[in-house]
Each structure stands twice: as structure tokens, then as C-alpha cells.
């Protein structure tokens, strides 16, 4: 079942296209990470899922219906990038208030969630730190075991331990069949929980690939050490090798794709040491947006 389905989804303000002709399909139980620079259109996309913004053209369905439908919303857990609650509302009041609007959550489950996140929920929202506000948002998003989680920068402001806890929570929800759509600038979040990533650039979906594809596509630098100074042409003709450099007894190469042939040639040449430096999601992210950074 397709849980999020966008076709030609476009949002324009005047001539400015915040989201431009976005096609997207996220399946049940999948975790889809939507990545991009600030202002790329991530939050605008999320806000169209929930009918806060109406598309200029195209369409979007969540859980088979419209984000405007209360029945659909009752199955969604949402964490906005900037959560704002009434200033005097405490965390526990928020749980009861938003529970009373939708489905009153299991008290024991809420308490377990708060304990897990280390949240003391008796202080007014306006007195909470950024991290504590985030914790309140996470409790509210997860407390009803939603079928779809829409999380905009979920770990922003959380310490590394809580970021790890959050990742565990997402994995647990995926395991029980929930779908997760998240935006994040924390690549370790994405690396660990996502099944697929989409990179949005100036409103357009620039790349979309599964984590398996990502790993296959990922490239790396390898430095080999030999007993004697190697010849710079030693790896000529080996598939995927480029940027060969020699310094003393060390030879550095850039490998694009599988390293099997490289290792075979290194063994033939009697390499005594190997060091790898793998490009990861963060490098792909930076590569994708390097044209903007160079402006």
C-alpha cells in the first residue's frame, strides 16, 4: 500500500516555486528521508501533506485520503520543525488536550515515553528549553502509535543520547508497520533509520535512491602502502579508478563503485597496508548541493 502519494505536487507563491512538480510514493512500513538545504521545500511539502497549504497544482494523498480529513489525521503523528504550543500549557496538559481532540492515549504508554525521553512534563511550555520542547513534540507525535509519522527535523536540539533514543523509537515503529517520513540535517539519523532518501533542491526532487543503492553508488578514497615506491601507472585499466597519486611508498586512488578489482591488483603488487576513506550520505548531500555553495 502506498501511504504517501504525490503527483506533480507544486506550490508556488507568485513566480517562486517552493515545491515544483514533485512525484513521490512512500510505501507502508517504509522510512523515507527527505533531505535538502534550508528553504529547499521540505517543510512546505510536509505542510501540504497535512492540508495546511493547498497545492498550486498536482495532488497528494496520505493514508489513501486527504490530510484535511480528521479520520486520516487521527492516524498521523506530526512533529513540526518549530513546535509551538500555548505558552502556559504544560507537557502533561498537552498530552491530555491533544489526546482529547483525537484519541486519548494510554497513560502508561505516555509515561513510558516521557521516561524514555527524560521529560518532566509539569512545566509550562514557555519555560522549557529547546530540547525539552522537542521531547514534548516527540511524545505527542508517538503517543498514539500512528500509522504515519511526519517528522520535520525531529532531533534538532536533542543531545546525542536522545538522538540515539529517537532512532530506536523510529526503528521500533517501523517494525510494527508504521511509515515514517522525515526531514533531517543529521545524516546519522538518516543513515540508521531510512530505507530511502530523496534530495530536494530548489523545490525539485534532485535525487531519489534507496539506502542499498546509496551504498552501491558510494565512492571512496583508498591509500595503499607498498614495500617500495609504486609506479603511478600501476592501476591503469582498473575499472572505477581515478585520481592516482604517489607519495613515497604510498599510492592514493579514488574508487568509484566496487573495489574487488582494486584489491586484486593491490595484492598482485604486494601491498602491505590499506586505508579506506568511504564517502557517505553526507558527501552525496554535499555533492548534490555543491553547485549552490559555489554560487
Amino acid at each position: 500500500m502506498t501511504v504517501i502519494e504525490a503527483q506533480g505536487l507544486t506550490k508556488k507563491w507568485g513566480d517562486f516555486a517552493a515545491v515544483d512538480d514533485l512525484d513521490l510514493a512512500v510505501g507502508e512500513g517504509e522510512c523515507y528521508a527527505f533531505l535538502g538545504r534550508n528553504g529547499a521545500g521540505k517543510s512546505t511539502t510536509a505542510r501540504m501533506f497535512l492540508d495546511f497549504l493547498r497545492p498550486t497544482s498536482g495532488s497528494v494523498k496520505v493514508l489513501g485520503g486527504s490530510g484535511a480529513d480528521p479520520e486520516v489525521r487521527s492516524r498521523i503523528g506530526y512533529l513540526p520543525g518549530d513546535l509551538n504550543l500555548p505558552p502556559t500549557m504544560t507537557g502533561i496538559e498537552a498530552v491530555h488536550y491533544f489526546g482529547s481532540i483525537g484519541h486519548e492515549p494510554d497513560t502508561a504508554k505516555v509515561q513510558a515515553l516521557m521516561d524514555r525521553l527524560g521529560l518532566t512534563a509539569d512545566r509550562p511550555f514557555h519555560q522549557l528549553s529547546t530540547g525539552s520542547r522537542r521531547k514534548v513534540g516527540l511524545v505527542l507525535a508517538f503517543m498514539n502509535d500512528p500509522d504515519l509519522l511526519i517528522l520535520d527535523e525531529p532531533t534538532s536540539g536533542l543531545d546525542p543520547v536522545l538522538q540515539d533514543t529517537f532512532r530506536d523509537m523510529v526503528i521500533e515503529h517501523k517494525q510494527r508497520g508504521a511509515t515514517v517520513w522525515l526531514t533531517s540535517h543529521v545524516m546519522s539519523d538518516v543513515d540508521r533509520v531510512a530505507d530511502r532518501v530523496g534530495l530536494i533542491d530548489q523545490g525539485k526532487l534532485a535525487q531519489q535512491l534507496s539506502m542499498d543503492e546509496l551504498r552501491t553508488k558510494s565512492t571512496g578514497n583508498i591509500t595503499l602502502t607498498f614495500p617500495d615506491a609504486p609506479d603511478v601507472s600501476s592501476f591503469d585499466g582498473v575499472e572505477g579508478v581515478s585520481n592516482v597519486q604517489v607519495a613515497d611508498r604510498q599510492l592514493s586512488i579514488h574508487v568509484d563503485g566496487p573495489v574487488t578489482a582494486v584489491l586484486a591488483r593491490a595484492a598482485e603488487l604486494g601491498a602491505v597496508d590499506i586505508q579506506t576513506e568511504k564517502n557517505d550520505l553526507e558527501d552525496i548531500f554535499l555533492d548534490t548541493y555543491s553547485h549552490e555553495a559555489g554560487r
Binding site: 505542510r47 497535512l50 492540508d51 495546511f52 484535511a68 480528521p70 479520520e71 489525521r73 487521527s74 498521523i76 506530526y78 513540526p80 518549530d82 513546535l83 509551538n84 504550543l85 500555548p86 491533544f98 481532540i101 483525537g102 484519541h103
Partner: peptide, 15 residues
């Protein structure tokens, strides 16, 4: 303007 309306609208309630 305070941003509190949006979160209420993410819950199962109509405009």
C-alpha cells in the same frame, strides 16, 4: 501568527 493553530490542525479536527 503564534504558530499554535497549525499544531491543533494536525489533530483530528476540522477547520
Amino acid at each position: 501568527a503564534d504558530g499554535t493553530l497549525e499544531y491543533v490542525l494536525s489533530k483530528p479536527v476540522t477547520r
